[in-house]
Design a protein around this nucleic acid. Structure first.
Lengths: 202, 202
DNA sequence: TAGAATCCGGACTGTGGGTCCGTTTTGACG
DNA sequence: CGTCAAAACGGACCCACAGTCCGGATTCTA
């Protein structure tokens, strides 16, 4: 009942396309250099098959993205702290942003392709809205912070795929250093709301 | 001696193209919908003329961007506080970011076109490097802040053209409200470094 | 005003996303 | 197992657009 039963060749080809696209995008090189025809050839299907299954290029990218994002989403929704819902807001915010950063580090070309040529704004994508809504809600629980809606946008903007690519890929900033920098930045922002009765400096 | 003397028709056409492109990009509608042929037609020249004068689409966009950015750049480099060099770092950081935000609000479609289809990363553009270098230097002067290089990137990311477009264009957030939100966010971040001997909360 | 250097402009090319439709596969039913 | 309609296949085809090319027009120099 989950979905209309689809013909088995359709399902098989869908998987083949996803696998092929996955491989092609993971391989080094600009995401723009991977054409739909390339994907079709690598998957051993015709172009028509891809477009029927995914609608357009952006659809394919989104589908791939969702697949890869699945584990992270699960960890966030039902996992243990600090990522899961049981964590305190002050711990969860940095954990969430770190998770996003790590995801983009692990899926640079894909995230890049999706954010750049992904049709319209990345801001209309529903996966962005998920992240934003969640982050906003968590920020909301921390009193004394500025507009949490904008703050959520701004913090997420620090993990934009092309920025990550620039820093990690272009400037060769090591993964752990980048994570630390983001963590510091987030910590700085969170520090603007006094943790308790405001006991101030050390 | 500023530049090789160019033929007067070349100069005239260059201006015509800039003016036409300016008008076309300012007019509502997606920047992608403005083709080079459109610009050529509007300017009353042939396509070849545009490509000879600006190299490629990105070159035209960059040239336009520079022209529009000129006043802001001057205000930043030689203007009065809080934008100019005489301002204290704590005042100048928010002023700089506000200036960037206002600029992008005033030039939404253009900034969008440049950041999206602008060839490669926006992070390799030299105007980005100017802003980043400047912001970084100013942040550097505020003791107690996290890595100023990354912080500069992160703060600038909050003014990304597509985010601005999303908030101001899509969600109809009024200009002044957006400025206030950014200002709050920046203030929050700056507050993480104690202004003086850390007199703490109010 | 002659001649050369430079520029003009629009026809032309290459590329890649997306569509179309004749052919093939699948699965339900008798 | 044989038949048939629905669904899927695939690659030839279309189109839009960035970027190129070159014969002809324009502008500078002498």
């Amino acid at each position: 009942m989950t979905e209309r039963k689809s013909r088995k060749d359709a399902a098989r080809n869908r998987e083949a396309v996803l696998a092929a696209a996955d491989a092609l995008f993971t391989r080094g090189g600009s995401p723009e250099d991977v054409t739909m025809a390339d994907v079709a050839a690598a998957a051993g299907v015709g172009k028509g098959t891809i477009f029927r299954a995914f609608g357009d290029r952006a659809g394919l990218l989104r589908a791939l993205y969702e697949v890869r994002l699945e584990p992270v989403r699960e960890a966030v929704e039902t996992g243990p702290p600090p990522l899961g819902p049981a964590a305190s807001p002050r711990d969860r915010v940095p954990a969430l942003l770190d998770a996003v950063l790590c995801f983009k580090l692990d899926n640079r070309r894909l995230a890049l392709a999706l954010e750049e040529g992904g049709g319209g704004s990345p801001y209309r994508a529903e996966h962005y809205e998920r992240w934003h809504g969640l982050l906003r809600a968590v920020l909301e629980q921390i009193p004394g912070l500025a507009d949490s809606g904008f703050a959520a946008h701004a913090l997420l903007a620090a993990t934009r795929a092309d920025l990550v690519e620039h820093l990690a890929g272009e400037e060769r900033v090591p993964r752990e250093r980048l994570r630390a920098q983001l963590a510091d930045f987030v910590a700085g922002f969170l520090a603007s709301a006094p943790p308790r009765g405001a006991a101030a400096a050390e």
